Amino acid sequence: MTKAAPDGGRDLVSVIVPAYNAALTIQETIASAQAQTWRDLEIVVVDDGSTDDTAAIAERMAADDPRIRVLRKSNGGVSSARNAGAAACRGAFVTPVDADDVLHPTRIARQMARMAELGPRCGVVYTLAATIDMAGRITGTKGFPGFEGAVYLRGLAVNFVGNGSALLIRREALLDVGGYDEAQRNCDDWLLQSLIARRWRWGAVNEALTGYRSVPGSKKSNHLKMRLAQLQAVRRLAERYPETPADVIAAAEAMGRGQLCVLRLRLIEPLAAIAEFARAVALSPRVALETVFVVEFGRLGATALDRGLRALRLRREPEPGPPFLAADPRAALATWPRPPFARLLRRFEAREEAVFLTPSRAAGVEDVRLDSLA
């Protein structure tokens, strides 16, 4: 068991980089952490049993920068690696960054400023993210702006962060919920977000300060597994926090089933798709219909139309986006996509404060010592 490192300064931020066979991208990830304008930080790279040059690259960078430490462990999955990093870090704040993602130079400074504005009951500050390709060019958007304060119910309905690398977490909040759940092999970051949101307030920096890269063949790109894992996480949240309103849990499950329905259709599994849709309707007919026919089919239709117009040369091929690290993180905010399920989110938002102030009846131990995260 890894014991907790001595505490650093109260403004020290620990960047935790879980890495498994990330030799193609880890140098850029670490370099983006080194380039932060917030100088009071450490970078903890956790090599999760890589079989390529991941650890060697990180160790070469550590030799030139005393802020970098490299931990090696046997392969246990990303949650295990994040928890090992949390156990070894010294910062009062932590930011987990996947080994293929990058940070805008001002990101941590902007998050720390917002954290200070919101006070000690703020457990997390998130940023928006730009999706990037292997060359680091912007290809799209990730996350939704403006989710602050009590966000637990809305977070069950819409994953407004959309990735695990956009968070600055007060370490006290991370420990309060026991760290990442290592039994949750996918969507572990979304489950952590929800656990913290039940007990801590949130803040937002509405700028694209995180570069989110989906490498072909990576866990990030397996949408079916991710949807199934999110449904599992919803059920675990219902068990852990039984005071969560039943209609909110039903809506979250109906959305998940509706999304699975469309995925099954795309995989040419019509019987499985029909079964998922029937389950979604049984949980919440209105949410199921909106998920499938408005949100999911709407996205597919818009994508198909765009491709058709480009094939007919009625619409130009999109130009390559600018390099993420050189782009203005506020440039696209005016046209940033709005979250779906607007009416449902408004209903949930009206109930957030009452649910947040309801004492938690969590099933299981909530107060977890730092050294138990190893």
Rank of each mutant, 00 (worst) to 15 (best):
M1L: 14
K3I: 11
A4T: 02
D7M: 07
V13Y: 04
L24P: 10
E28T: 09
T29A: 06
T29E: 06
I30W: 03
E42F: 00
V45S: 02
D47C: 03
A63G: 04
P66W: 04
V70N: 05
V70S: 06
R72P: 02
N75S: 11
G76Y: 04
G76W: 08
G77W: 03
S80D: 13
R82P: 06
R82A: 01
R90E: 06
A92N: 08
A92I: 05
F93S: 02
P96D: 06
V97Y: 02
D98Q: 08
D100K: 00
T106V: 12
T106E: 14
P120D: 09
P120S: 08
R121C: 05
R121Q: 12
Y126H: 08
Y126D: 07
M134G: 10
G136I: 07
F147E: 04
R154L: 07
G155V: 07
N163L: 11
N163I: 12
A166L: 07
A173R: 03
E182M: 12
A183P: 02
Q184N: 12
Q184C: 11
Q184E: 15
R185C: 03
C187I: 04
L191E: 10
L192K: 01
L192C: 01
S194W: 13
R199K: 09
R199F: 08
R201Q: 10
V205Q: 01
A229G: 06
A233E: 12
L237P: 03
E239Q: 11
E243A: 00
A251H: 11
A254M: 01
L263E: 09
R264Y: 15
L265E: 15
E269T: 10
A272H: 14
I274F: 13
E276H: 15
F277A: 06
R279M: 07
L283I: 05
R286K: 14
L289C: 14
V294F: 12
V294I: 14
L314I: 10
E319H: 07
P323S: 14
L325R: 10
A327Y: 05
A332D: 14
L333D: 03
L333M: 10
T358L: 05
P359H: 00
R361N: 09
A363F: 02
G364M: 10
V365T: 15
R369T: 14
L370D: 06
L373D: 04
A374Q: 08
